[in-house]
């Protein structure tokens, strides 16, 4: 540089072009193979942790981990009467029940009177509901919010975790997961 100027060699002049081609290659690759934004549960393939929940409202059977290992696949839905998305989800669950899916519920931090009102208003697709008053079972299942659902096979092994509400568009996928769990 001293007493001179900066002269760019041929290699330097072509460097931006080379860099650009590299970046475009990476971006084309990303556009062609969109990122999988789903987080897969580490509990998939593992047995449901042992639990024995009390009844959530009078007259409805309670839920324990032993009930899930009944030889039939179950859909375990973690929900609450205070959860707004659960209101719309329960109608989808109703549709799944009509197609023969056995659905059990875990009501998180709920009160019997609120729960009864919720089910009376929105429908009751659940065979059993366990009351998880302090979210302990929810946490042991690796669930961090409501609603979430688990496909559990006949041996009580978790096959699939669904985070968020099950939409109508998810029904075929959920049915397929249950079929695989059979």
């Amino acid at each position: 540089m001293a007493n001179g100027t900066l002269r760019m060699t041929r290699a330097v002049r072509f460097a931006p072009l080379a860099l650009l081609l590299l970046i475009i290659a990476a971006l084309v690759w990303r556009l062609a193979t969109p990122a999988d934004t789903n987080v897969h549960s580490t509990l998939e393939g593992k047995a449901v942790p042992g639990f024995d929940l009390g009844e959530a409202l009078p007259g409805k059977p309670a839920l324990s981990s032993a009930d899930l290992a009944s030889g039939q696949p179950h859909l375990v839905n973690i929900f609450a009467s205070w959860c707004v998305p659960c209101v719309t989800e329960v109608k989808v669950l109703e549709a799944l029940r009509e197609r023969g899916v056995r659905i059990d519920g875990i009501a998180v931090r709920d009160r019997p009177e609120d729960l009864a009102e919720f089910l009376a208003l929105n429908g009751d697709p659940y065979e059993r509901i366990g009351s998880d008053e302090r979210s302990q079972v929810q946490i042991s299942l690796g669930s961090s919010g409501v609603p979430e659902s688990f496909v559990v096979d006949g041996k009580g092994v978790i096959r699939y975790q669904h985070i968020g509400a099950i939409e109508h568009s998810d029904v075929p996928m959920i049915l397929a997961k249950l079929e695989q769990a059979r």
Partner: peptide, 22 residues
């Protein structure tokens, strides 16, 4: 890409101006 190609090809013809010290 076109701008960088243009730069790579034509950049060689650019005569640097007044020199300067360190």
């Amino acid at each position: 890409g076109a701008a960088f190609v243009l730069f790579a090809v034509r950049g060689a013809n650019l005569k640097e101006g007044a020199p300067f010290e360190l």
